[in-house]
Simulated assay, not measured.
Amino acid sequence: MHVVHTIADLRQALAGSQHPALVPTMGNLHEGHIALVQRAKPLGDILVTSIFVNRLQFLPHEDFDSYPRTLQDDCAKLEAAGCDIVFAPKESDLYPEPQTFKVTPDPALGDLLEGHFRPGFFTGVCTVVMKLFSAALLGRPRSTAVFGQKDYQQLMVIRHMVQQFALPIDIVSVATARADDGLALSSRNRYLSPEQREQATALSKALQALAQASVQATQAGGAWASQVPALEAQALATLRAQGWQPDYLTLRRRSDLQAPNDQDGPGTLVALGAARLGTTRLIDNLEL
């Protein structure tokens, strides 16, 4: 396995590749990341995993400086998983000058939910992903990038970006990896105290309850969508009663993340949530 730090060295390492596969990460890898790597391995003739904590997608008060950086441990895990190249640029390697050109997603998708509570987040995501695509994938007739479904809205934004720019990149998604008790795996889970870790499953349970209540409403027929705000309010109240600070717990259409209507039903919907437990913000989702 090769570890490279500059775009020039990455491109040199990929010079003979006709169909590379890329797994973009911010490092501090867990089993969910390794599942992405294992899914990507057979999809290309060479596999690149990028590790870069992207300042552009953090708000000033968020955890950019304290975000766990564990490159040596990450490389050991990636080598064991069969990764061919680790691209681990410094900030000055990826942004040698201020990144004044940025990729801004459609506000109809990028300014709601995560984009509402973290303004500018998806512009930062799209900009760094486009730069990673340019460094590792573009210039070839076909390539692949693999992302996790835990970041559901992010996955949608990236799919739309690839479609609108007509990029010759297949976007492959992998189901959310979970601990035995149902908690979605996340690098930020390390911030949780032992007591908070025991409480952390409440988010996935709240989404399951919202999904179940929504399915029951659709099965009853009629103007079921009018019940959704009350179901969401109940889910929020349940989390708050357990000491959480939720940003949202909501039911949306999978296709565009807009509120459902009476014609929507199971197979077209997703429950999404984001909430803080102490100072740790967790996200999760559940398709139904």
Rank of each mutant, 00 (worst) to 15 (best):
L137H: 02
I51A: 14
G44Y: 03
R55T: 06
A175I: 00
V53Q: 02
E62M: 03
A135M: 05
Q57V: 12
A175L: 00
S173W: 00
I171L: 15
S143D: 02
A166H: 15
S92F: 03
S50L: 10
T127F: 07
T100D: 05
G120D: 14
L167H: 09
M130D: 08
C75M: 04
Q154K: 08
H61R: 11
Q164S: 11
I158E: 00
V48H: 08
T127Q: 05
T100I: 12
L137A: 01
V48S: 11
A135E: 06
D45S: 10
R55G: 07
R140Y: 12
F121I: 02
S143F: 05
L47D: 04
D65H: 10
A81E: 11
A80H: 12
L47R: 11
D151E: 02
L155S: 15
F122H: 04
A81Q: 07
P107M: 12
Q149T: 00
V129Q: 01
E79N: 09
L132R: 12
G139I: 06
M161H: 02
S134I: 01
F147R: 07
G120S: 05
D84Y: 15
I85G: 03
K77T: 08
A76R: 14
D73G: 10
Q99L: 07
Y152H: 12
Q149H: 00
A166Y: 15
D170N: 12
D170L: 00
T104L: 14
L78P: 09
R69F: 08
F121Q: 04
K90D: 15
I169M: 07
M156Q: 09
E91F: 04
G115N: 06
G139A: 12
L155N: 06
G148Q: 00
A175C: 00
